[in-house]
Design a protein around this nucleic acid. Sequence first.
DNA 1: AATGAATGAGAATTCATTCAT
DNA 2: TATGAATGAATTCTCATTCAT
Lengths: 214, 214, 214, 214
Amino acid sequence: MAEMEDGRKPKFRRRAEARPDEVLDAALDLFIEKGFAATRVEDIAARAGISKGAVYLYFPSKEKILEGLVQRAILPIANSALSSLRTIEGDPRPIMTGVLKMLGQRLADARLLAIPKLVVREVLGYPELAQMYRREVLDRVMPVIEGLITQGIAEGYFRPVDPRLTIRSIIGPMMLHVVLAEVFAIGADVSMEQLIDNHITILFDGLSLSPASR
Amino acid sequence: MAEMEDGRKPKFRRRAEARPDEVLDAALDLFIEKGFAATRVEDIAARAGISKGAVYLYFPSKEKILEGLVQRAILPIANSALSSLRTIEGDPRPIMTGVLKMLGQRLADARLLAIPKLVVREVLGYPELAQMYRREVLDRVMPVIEGLITQGIAEGYFRPVDPRLTIRSIIGPMMLHVVLAEVFAIGADVSMEQLIDNHITILFDGLSLSPASR
Amino acid sequence: MAEMEDGRKPKFRRRAEARPDEVLDAALDLFIEKGFAATRVEDIAARAGISKGAVYLYFPSKEKILEGLVQRAILPIANSALSSLRTIEGDPRPIMTGVLKMLGQRLADARLLAIPKLVVREVLGYPELAQMYRREVLDRVMPVIEGLITQGIAEGYFRPVDPRLTIRSIIGPMMLHVVLAEVFAIGADVSMEQLIDNHITILFDGLSLSPASR
Amino acid sequence: MAEMEDGRKPKFRRRAEARPDEVLDAALDLFIEKGFAATRVEDIAARAGISKGAVYLYFPSKEKILEGLVQRAILPIANSALSSLRTIEGDPRPIMTGVLKMLGQRLADARLLAIPKLVVREVLGYPELAQMYRREVLDRVMPVIEGLITQGIAEGYFRPVDPRLTIRSIIGPMMLHVVLAEVFAIGADVSMEQLIDNHITILFDGLSLSPASR
DNA sequence: AATGAATGAGAATTCATTCAT
DNA sequence: TATGAATGAATTCTCATTCAT
């Protein structure tokens, strides 16, 4: 399509409105692979198929690429099903189960997972990244789950636990699973689905065998 | 020499064998504060009260300081009460509760927590760090907890869950709590004790209100 | 096309031959403001209201813009009243006074003054600029003034001074005034007119109070 | 002295307290020759006989080298004979003549002259340089000369001229001479001494031939 | 003629590591 | 042992210039 008759690669590709996104894609790959600090702007450029200078046409600094990456990832979350979730009457457990499975799917997508990983890794150098992530993602998602808990308690489905703390009991296991797998290569053979199934049982009904079933 | 007539601090610890440890202490402080990459060897030296060159008398490279830090932190864990824990007969729940509280205490100690944080953050650049941490810490601690679960199931205290997955349900909430607090400044007002209490209830008895208590 | 229904400025001067001049105008403004090195070709283009690429249609390099600027400023000087000044008989002092006042006026015009300032500032990088300025301006103007001096001496109006050196005594004060004001912000409240009046008195009659007037 | 037995150049030269000065010397040479912008830090290092990195041991930035250069040049001026000049009674003309000759000598020293040249050339980019030079040099020197004029007027030696303007008539010619010679290569064959002699005549007694001497 | 995306050489600065003392 | 001056590779960012459209 862009090949030239004489076989040379076209040196310029103009009016590429997709460029910033291509840069972000390249950067994400490399940040995942080597981390932010260890990735050179030149590497990003090379992977995006453009020159070093061209990167600076779209992003004023390497740091802004990181920011752009987080921003781009965050946008769709605002519109996600999750954040618009408003529980109606009735048992919140099926909904909560659904939410967990959805989160599980997202965490299984490497390019989606890469963003919070980046944020966590780079928080010391770029604390505003974590603030942004918190504001746009956590502050939207966590209240929804807390709402489910609160409602479940009010309607007599759940024990009178502290919703803010309970959210950690709900999500934490998935997070630990990711950390073990990604950082320590532990449990790579275990699927997120299995984990969620096992976890939901414990979460809702407890680890203890009820005296009745003994 | 130690006369201090001139008012300067006497140079105690000449040829002190504690030097490497002082370097590690200094490094730990700085790695916590600014991260590995952003910490200069000169900063470490300054905080340790020695010269830049002297650091290299004890550690052949900056990277080896990081390694030394993890190694030093890991040693006592091998000998810790936890890893030598062998459950006797009977209900494993009190023991498990004790283990969680002990972990909670450790996570509350910034200098102890700093090590896994470092490992997580630097895993891309120094994967051998994570391997070491896994081998020395996780591979010792996790089987103990898994053992408790397995035993609990065998003795009829616990539901027949998957022990390897269940460990994530047990520890995960504490980890998420740490991440939320440390990275996103969420829930700084919540104490680890409160979290553990809330979590233990759910963990053992489930979120659901048992039909009996309704 | 020139309808302006959309409210945008119509692009008058299509293919205008005035373009190079507009580029020079823009460049002069910016060179005055920030200096040659600190001015980007893109800035010049923006101020000239054209694209970066278009600048290169008129000037093959940034350096040639500088050259063009000096050249353009120099042309009218060759044809100026000054250079065609041929002293007639009689007292050269009124003429010399007139010349000084004219120079004073020119130095007060920022855009005119900018050219020698540029030449002086950029002489190290572009010595040919200084040569050009010398050839076209100084080598035309200085002999005229020297001629006035020589004639004044010959006709008995002036002391038998060295005309080549004396020209420095005539023009120097004005130049120092400009440097003090422009570079060091000294004497911004003093007008060139005042300076010239004060200077002419001294120049013609000396600082010393004549014995007669004592 | 520093030669090694095997003939290799010594790589390190330690505890050189003269280093900053050597860097400034090297920088001055290069700034004179090529200007500030066109001089690379690496060039300075090479000429100072050290590595690029070593320059940054002594100066935190290229800009600070420039600043240091001006600062170093300025220091002795505060203690110079000129600034401590306090006229006693009597004819100020011999003193003024002496001052002019002293200034003339200074302007003839290329390394001394280089500083104000630098300041003038770089004022746009580093206006604080000009402020410093003004504060430390001009604001000390100019009042002294103005004082001479004022005193000369008060004691009846000088015409009632404006001292602030007259200082331009006194110094300006020397400055123009320098500019013509340095920038435009005009009058390289004329010595500063000749200029001063010619100028002093005009300055004190005027260009005009007094009617008496006609 | 005109555009502006793209290039790439170049320069300042940093810092882990070395080594003369 | 200890120092800290010195090194130099590495990296970010800039901008004059080119050229496909």
